[in-house]
């Protein structure tokens, strides 16, 4: 009975930390004690109802938590991994009752689909792809893109799931012949896909035909940029990048995110906005998430910072809680909720 108790999350006290516009509404405790690596929120159908659930990933176990009343959560499924640890959760939009995970040590070695038996009584996992995988992203229309292989034999593969998460089709995209670091969909353009590469290029594909449309150099000022969001407006491509390697300057502070605009026809680009830390705050981008016009980042200082991309400035700071640095942050799919995680497995849910 005591085990069940530890798997139901606490509701925090009212006097919890409330910095800026962030309000703590819920906390999930990790009873396993192993190192926590990622969190995400997704719809899962339970007893005929689609519920907004939370997925937590520790090194060797991924768990699904369903909402109870009054911001409490109950763990209902857990998938266990014996040999290779979990690196990240990969959500596949438009697929219900299926989540993917990337497993590996420093680099991704496997991507697995996690699902349940048709009666909902037992967990299942299916190996989707394995090898030397560099980047992976779930796409709209039940698709998953991954890039991998050796230097001479790299592949960009699209997998399409059936509605029930079952049988799948495979298709290949033309490879840009340089290592792909991250993928990003172009909002509102379901057949366009972007990638950032190790050579500071942004590449763009046509997902329908598999064509590589353009390779666009964005300059050498920021290495290893991660693309978080892209949208097309008035014939131009707007891209939100984060800069793990950016150095701060006295004038501008430390740029954590940047908005650039690219003309895909000419491949010319210019910077539109730098999203810097407020004065007096130190740290570089460690990891983060962008949803709509809000960007959240965990900094090397252990603090989480939030920017309103339209206003152009940092709107909230969340310092470490209980002497524990933050290690990852995700926006939840509903409302403006922020899921903030610590290495020891505690997940805090904030209303923004």
């Amino acid at each position: 009975h005591s085990t069940e108790q530890t798997e139901i999350a606490d509701v925090p006290a009212c006097d919890s930390l409330n910095p800026g516009t962030l309000q703590l509404v819920s906390k999930l405790k990790n009873p396993s004690g192993s190192c926590s690596v990622d969190v995400s929120a997704m719809l899962w159908e339970i007893a005929g109802f689609k519920e907004q659930c939370i997925i937590t990933a520790c090194e060797y176990v991924v768990s699904l938590w369903k909402p109870l009343d009054t911001w409490q959560w109950e763990k209902i499924y857990s998938w266990h991994f014996a040999e290779v640890p979990v690196l990240q959760i990969v959500l596949v939009p438009d697929v219900c009752n299926l989540v993917c995970v990337a497993l590996g040590n420093l680099e991704i070695r496997e991507i697995r689909a996690l699902l349940c038996s048709p009666d909902g009584k037992s967990e299942k996992q299916v190996l989707l792809t394995s090898g030397n995988i560099k980047a992976v992203l779930g796409l709209t229309k039940r698709r998953l893109v991954s890039s991998g292989g050796t230097l001479c034999d790299q592949q960009v593969e699209i997998m399409t799931f059936a509605e029930d998460g079952g049988s799948k089709e495979k298709q290949f995209l033309m490879h840009p012949e340089e290592t792909i670091l991250t993928f990003a969909e172009v909002q509102g353009m379901q057949e366009a896909l972007l990638g950032t590469t190790i050579m500071n290029n942004i590449v763009i594909w046509n997902l329908k035909t598999g064509q590589l449309l353009k390779k666009m150099h964005i300059g050498d000022s920021y290495q290893a940029s991660v693309c978080h969001k892209a949208y097309s407006e008035m014939g131009l491509l707007f891209v939100v990048l984060s800069h793990p390697c950016a150095k701060g300057s006295k004038l501008l502070g430390s740029p954590v995110f940047q908005l650039i605009v690219i003309n895909p026809k000419t491949t010319l680009s210019v910077g539109v906005m730098l999203y810097c830390l407020p004065q007096g705050q130190a740290g570089r981008f460690l990891e983060g998430d962008v949803k709509d016009h809000f960007a959240a980042a965990v900094l090397t200082s252990g603090t989480i910072a939030i920017w309103d991309l339209l206003l152009g400035h940092c709107t909230a700071l969340l310092p470490p809680v209980s002497d524990q640095n933050w290690s990852f942050v995700k926006w939840s799919g509903v409302d403006s909720h922020l899921l903030a995680g610590q290495k020891d497995g505690n997940i805090f849910v904030y209303r923004y």
Binding site: K214, G235, K265
Partner: peptide
């Protein structure tokens, strides 16, 4: 930023690049 720095802009860039790129 100045739009002129980006060269001629096309609203149908995706279709145009798709017709120009190798299959």
């Amino acid at each position: 930023c100045n739009k002129a720095d980006l060269g001629p802009i096309s609203l149908n860039w995706f279709e145009e690049l798709s017709s120009e790129a190798p299959p």
